[in-house]
Amino acid sequence: MDALVTNFPFVIVAILVAIGFYAVAFKRNLIKIVMGITIIESAVNMFLITLGYVQGAYAPIYTMAPEEAQGNMVLPTPQALTLTSIVIGVAVTALMLAFVVNIYRHYGTLDSRKARRLRE
């Protein structure tokens, strides 16, 4: 039971990644494909955050830290990584949606089976 609780976030990560893969690979609407990529991104972010979690440890803020926090702080790196990744993710999502808008303007469709003049 304890192992399940500890690994629960990783199970969620796996489920989210699977949903994202499904959306990217099998959904026809381009916006849903973008959503799939965003879901995978959330899964990866959650994976990073989970790695940085230590039970009973304190946030790495030295100002006004309580006594027992000495030597019992988590590394701030995973949080920093996740923040960077979220920022990058926003840029990527915005760019993808901009392209989708442009595709719709020119092709009049969002179906990935029809929006494919570049093939062979």
Partner: peptide, 8 residues
């Protein structure tokens, strides 16, 4: 056939 051009 391999180069469908479909992003999926």
């Amino acid at each position: 056939k391999m180069h469908t051009g479909d992003v999926r």
